[in-house]
Each structure stands twice: as structure tokens, then as C-alpha cells.
Write a protein that binds this DNA or RNA. Structure first.
Length: 430
RNA sequence: GCCGGGAUGGGGUAGCCUGGUUAUCCUAGGGGACUGUGGAUCCCUUGACCCGAGUUCAAAUCUCGGUCCCGGCCCCA
């Protein structure tokens, strides 16, 4: 027996029912915001992620050489590929450019709850907007997307990395190490780095600032702590806070000055979305504004984006009991007797043509075993086709839930079956 | 990379501590009685000790290594 590679899954019909629901919710959300779909290749030059990734991150990629000796990597995320595409192909496109991507990405990490080596991401980027409008649009879309997918009990934590960058007037590399230590709450390391940079007097302030978490009032507190440095950042978040209700977002958002996402290319607003129902691995997505285009040889352009882990959203939406349309048959056709099999297939074809999900006996079983099979497949109706009824232009229609059976004219079959088709499960958008 | 708990037919399980008949039970799959109403019933049948070493007269059971799964740590673009 051949086993699956570690960290991979076989996505079964039951899982995919929910996964597809989440996927279409994401697509609808992004497209309702005017985003267009873009899909970079599944593998890219290693160099692309080398340019972007921080230290240690390379260890967690699926890197390999192809037959010509090129260094390649299975995409660990979408943003780099999308930005490469922008720099190569889209520099002269009308701004802003709004792109979304959805598909599997790959990371060589230890699997645990809700985390796999192949997993699905939903990714959105706005390139070339004005900061407030683009940041608000991005944040709003992220929140509305996960809500639409059925994860409604989520918390969005918004921070701003620009204020700390402004406060730490040290070389970029040193700054990066300090921010990383802050992000990890690694205070011994923080002390050490500040000491080396001759900035020890900032230590208490930094620790106090990143502990701030709450409503818009903490923005003022943070600003005071930093002695007015980074005032634009707080002003920005304040206006963002005022803007979100216009999108229908009035709760589940807090400000958290400890959200740092210690990666070198984040420049401004940053946020994370958490689902408390998920346990230890509760982050379902995050994003922020960043400067990447110049790393790939383009002009600087204001960029904001986010990525959401679809598998976590699938879990969260399941944990909240959101109903999804079950992958069930509308009808199963049971031919009774060889003579009418052709007619039964014809009836099946007509029903399929109306958009119903219809299957028919393919092994020549008797009525009893066929009803058994229809039951196992979760068919809502059994259509029993026999010559006795056919002589009158009818078939026997059996409700598989109640067991009631009656005769229906072949000509009316499609409309009768279509009538009680259950509504698509789902959640309203706001 | 690290720590803990696991792995028995397709699914769910008993047996393991205390080694010893043909590995338990439920469910599922295939065939038949049986081509007109039986979502049955009855009969037949398929099908498992994760892999590899070791201990032993004898290993599902004990020991070691590996693989994979489930949690957690590190990490999480």
C-alpha cells in the first residue's frame, strides 16, 4: 500500500462540499469588490522567494532542481508571484489594480491542527491605491470574506508597523531584528538588540506600546507613549476605524499595537484575523501594506494585501455549524425490466438537461437493491420506470425521505423534481 | 528540528498490561434466492494485526529503529 506524503490530505466529497462553499464565498466576495482573478504558476524560481523571505524561511519551502538544474520552489504563498506578474506585465495598467488568487500553496513545516504541507490560500492585493482607501478596502474585504464563508465569530486585530519603524531611528537591518524580537515577545533578545544599537532607553516604551490592545482610545495612548512620533500612523488607523462601519463592519475589530508581522517588507497597517474556535492554531489570515515591487525591479507602488488560510476557515465554519449544500443526488432512476432501459436512460438524460443531479442504475440490479443504492447515495427521489406506468405515460416517483410514492407523467417529471429543490445553504454577505 | 499519545479488513472496534487454537463484534463491499415495489429478509462470499530488525519453542501482544496519524513546542511569508 502506498501512503500519502506527510502533511498532505485526500480531500473527500464531504470535505469538499464545505471547501467549495468557502471557495465560492471567497470568489463572490472578491468579485463583488471588483477584484479580478490571477493565478501565478505552482512553481517559481527559488530566487523570487529568496528576495522576499526573511532568514530561516527558506528552510520551510519545497525547493528542488529541475532536469536542467534550475532552482525552483513550489509556491509557499501567492503575493510574490502576483507582484512578479505586476512588475513584468502590468506596470502600465490602470491603477488601482485589484487581483485575487485562490489555490494550493506548499510549505515544509510540521503538520498540526489545521496546518498541512499542502494547503489552500485565498489571496488579495490592491496595487496603486491611496493608503487609507486601499487599507480600508483590503481589511473590509478580508473580514467580509471570512464572514461570508461562515466563520462569523472572528476577531480582527489591527496594528501599524510604521509607527515603530519611525520610532526606531536605526539602520534597517537592526530595526528588523528589533521588530522580530518584539513580534515574538522575546524580551531578552530585545534587550540585547537595543543594547547593541545604543537604544536601551527605548526598551520600556516599546514594551508598553506593544501591550496596548483595545478600542480606538488606545491609539491616543500609544501616540502619547511614543511622544508623538508616528502620529501619522495613529491618525491613519483612526480614520480606518471610522471608515469600517461604511462597509457594514461594526464589531469584532480591535486595535492591537502588538501585531507586528515581523517581516521586512511590511511598511504600514498590518492585521490578523483569529478564530477563537480553533484552539492553538487560531490565526486564519492576515495582511497589511508592504513594499515589494521594488524588490522585483519595479517602481515603488503602494500595496496592500492579505492571505486567508482556507482550511482553517473550513474548520471554523464547520465549528460554527454553518450548513452547506450536501453533495447529494436529486434523483436516482430505477429501470424495472430490461425492455424499458432505453426509455429510462432517455428520461435520465432529459432530467440532467434541466440542471438536476441525476444518476441511474448501471449494473442491472433489481428494484430492491436499487432503492438501497439510491438511499446510500442520499438521493431525494427515486424514479421507478416500469412498463405498467409507461403505458400511461407515467413513472412512479418515490420520495426517499418519507417513502411516499405516486405516479407522475413523464412530461411533468422535471418540474415536479425541480420544485422542492432545497435552497442553497449559505450566509448573507454582511 | 523537539515533546507526548496513537496505528488491528473500506469505516468503527475487541484482544496487548499477563506472548500460546481458525484474531472478536458491528458496519460496509460483491454474488444469489429475485426483472413490478422488498429503502427488505435469508444464504454465500470478500477483506486486517503500519514497515523492518531483535528477544522467544512461539509475537497483534515484549524491545529497538523507521513511516504515517492526532495533539503541543519552535516556526508560521
Amino acid at each position: 500500500m502506498i501512503e500519502r506524503p506527510r502533511g498532505t490530505r485526500d480531500l473527500d466529497p464531504a470535505y469538499l462540499a464545505r471547501h467549495s462553499f468557502v471557495e465560492s464565498a471567497f470568489r463572490r466576495a472578491a468579485e463583488s469588490f471588483g477584484y479580478r482573478q490571477m493565478l501565478p504558476p505552482t512553481f517559481e524560481p527559488l530566487e523570487l522567494f529568496h528576495a522576499k523571505a526573511g532568514p530561516g524561511i527558506e528552510q520551510e519551502m519545497y525547493a528542488f532542481k529541475d532536469k536542467a538544474g534550475r532552482d525552483l520552489v513550489l509556491r509557499p504563498e501567492f503575493t510574490a508571484g502576483v507582484l512578479r506578474y505586476y512588475v513584468n506585465e502590468l506596470r502600465n495598467a490602470p491603477k488601482p489594480i485589484k487581483l485575487y488568487s485562490l489555490g494550493p500553496v506548499f510549505r515544509y513545516e510540521e503538520p498540526q491542527h489545521g496546518r498541512y504541507r499542502e494547503f489552500w490560500q485565498f489571496n488579495c492585493e490592491i496595487l496603486g491605491g491611496t493608503p487609507l482607501d486601499a487599507d480600508a478596502e483590503t481589511t473590509a474585504l478580508a473580514v467580509l470574506s471570512v464572514r461570508a464563508a461562515g466563520a462569523r465569530r472572528v476577531e480582527t486585530r489591527i496594528g501599524h508597523i510604521g509607527m515603530l519603524r519611525a520610532y526606531l531611528t536605526v539602520p534597517k537591518e537592526v530595526q528588523g531584528r528589533i521588530l522580530h524580537a518584539l513580534d515574538k515577545r522575546d524580551f531578552p533578545k530585545l534587550h540585547q538588540e537595543l543594547d547593541k544599537a545604543g537604544q536601551l532607553d527605548a526598551e520600556a516604551t516599546l514594551r508598553d506600546v506593544i501591550a496596548l490592545r483595545g478600542g480606538p482610545e488606545i491609539l491616543k495612548q500609544a501616540s502619547d507613549l511614543l511622544g508623538g512620533v508616528g502620529g501619522e500612523a495613529f491618525e491613519h488607523l483612526m480614520r480606518l476605524s471610522d471608515r469600517l462601519p461604511a462597509y457594514g463592519i461594526r464589531e469584532g475589530v480591535i486595535f492591537d499595537m502588538g501585531i507586528i508581522r515581523g517581516l521586512a517588507y511590511y511598511t504600514g497597517m498590518v492585521f490578523q484575523i483569529h478564530a477563537p474556535t480553533l484552539g492553538a492554531e487560531d490565526q486564519i489570515g492576515g495582511g497589511g501594506s508592504y513594499a515589494l515591487a521594488e524588490l522585483f525591479g519595479g517602481e515603488p507602488i503602494f500595496s496592500t494585501g492579505f492571505a486567508i488560510g482556507m482550511d482553517r476557515v473550513v474548520l471554523a465554519s464547520g465549528a460554527e455549524g454553518v450548513a452547506v449544500p450536501p453533495p447529494k443526488l436529486d434523483a436516482y432512476v430505477v429501470p424495472i425490466g430490461d425492455a424499458i432501459r432505453g426509455k429510462a436512460f432517455e428520461i435520465t438524460a432529459n432530467l440532467r438537461g434541466t440542471g438536476l443531479k441525476v444518476d441511474i442504475d448501471l449494473v442491472g440490479r433489481g428494484p430492491s437493491k436499487n432503492l438501497d443504492y439510491a438511499n446510500a447515495m442520499g438521493a431525494r427521489w427515486a424514479v421507478l420506470v416500469g412498463d405498467k406506468e409507461l403505458a400511461k405515460g407515467n413513472v412512479a416517483l418515490r420520495n426517499m425521505e418519507t417513502g411516499e410514492q405516486r405516479e407522475v407523467a413523464v412530461a411533468e417529471l422535471a418540474s415536479v423534481l425541480g420544485m422542492d429543490k432545497p435552497l442553497m445553504g449559505g450566509v448573507e454577505f454582511h
